[in-house]
Design a protein around this nucleic acid. Structure first.
Lengths: 210, 210
DNA sequence: TAACCTACCAAACACTTGTTAGGGAAGGAC
DNA sequence: GTCCTTCCCTAACAAGTGTTTGGTAGGTTA
């Protein structure tokens, strides 16, 4: 039987609340390795190598490999929804909303390339675990935002009436996020340029108008 | 020192040449598990479970987990290029070629859903291994076929002149293959229907023409 | 009947995995 | 000086990994 003896010094003290700079550094390198090799194929020893330390030392900062993954994804989604909510709250017209969402997405890829790649590759298997239930919630919000934008556009006659909005949603969603697998910040195209090209394709098509 | 004693009966005789039906069955279930859980997260014991046997028994049919993966991908790519080459050899106009390639791709997803999902998820990390060099070759052929089709279209003024063909190629490629992650044969839409919707979006855009 | 082949099982192998426990060096606070 | 905190190392652990070896039930062939 246990008695509640107040804040017992149970073990070490992993700094959970105020995130030190070192913690961020380690998460960044971990995200890089996860994105490059895949989560399951990444061993904690590889992460430690890239960080210039030994495997066990990681457990001073984090209490499991999985919790590193969770924190990486949580941080990314928090910032993503910061940007998205700003767009959605502005209550633009459907076309402008779509343009802003796409542009914002490519900006997030620019800022969180590794996290997006991980999200895109692993989220499908992760949502099954209750620990990663926040992924499912994010996906629902995401779907709702996009579907309602497309439907508003069809209703306002700015998008074509014969559109299958669910299919269109899937196409747009996938194309946008999968870009994280080939996008390199500082490459030929900026995030805004890619967004412009993509929007021009999706909105007006690649065929010459006759 | 060894002497060459001719065709020595080295070990058992794994049936490499003529593929028995059982082999195909096992590869199909393996592909299913690989696609669902990811290659690295899939243990040979899980594959054996799904096949109703024990892990060691798999090694009567195959000589490694990796060789199962290789055979799955090889079989898929062989059939894929069967379809693609037929389209390319027909020498349609650029727009018709693009339509045929997209349609053929969705048909392949319909037939090899699991293999496509694996290919899409793992190929990037696999091409580094020399064993999977055939993936790189396939990617080169793939890129060449698409780029030349797009360029032909721009030259013939059936595709817009301000198109960034490399970006367009990436968008189309990704959207098509990533569909394997949500497509379910026997679902609401047939492969041809999805192809039609997708082509309508890419060619003519989703915006209403003004 | 005897020999053989096919397709599997049972049990182990060497190795890698994520994780933990204890210790210690460096540096600031008192 | 001593104490304490931060950050890392050394060394090991148990569980899980892909793979191998030897055996065997059942059918086919000679």
């Amino acid at each position: 039987m246990w008695h509640d003896n107040g804040p017992v010094p149970t073990k070490k003290k992993p700094p959970v609340t105020a995130a030190p700079a070192r913690r961020r550094e380690l998460l960044d390198t971990a995200a890089e390795v996860f994105a490059e090799q895949g989560y399951n194929a990444t061993t904690v020893r590889k992460i430690a190598d890239h960080a210039g330390m030994l495997a066990g030392s990681l457990y001073y900062h984090f209490d499991s490999k999985e919790s590193m993954l969770e924190e990486i994804l949580r941080t990314f989604l928090d910032e993503l929804w910061g940007g998205y909510d700003t767009v959605l709250d502005a209550e633009f017209g459907p076309r402008e909303t779509l343009e802003a969402l796409v542009t914002e997405s490519f900006r997030e890829i620019d800022r969180h390339r590794a996290a997006v790649a991980i999200y895109q590759k692993e989220s499908k298997q992760l949502v099954a675990q209750e620990r990663f239930a926040f992924l499912a919630e994010s996906q629902r919000k995401f779907e709702k935002a996009w579907l309602s934008t497309l439907e508003r556009g069809v209703a306002a006659k700015v998008f074509r009436a014969d559109l299958d909005v669910r299919l269109t949603y899937r196409f747009v969603r996938d194309t946008v996020w999968v870009a994280a697998s080939w996008y390199r910040p500082g490459g030929q195209h900026s995030a805004e340029e890619i967004a412009r090209q993509y929007l021009s394709m999706v909105l007006d098509g690649i065929a010459v108008r006759t």
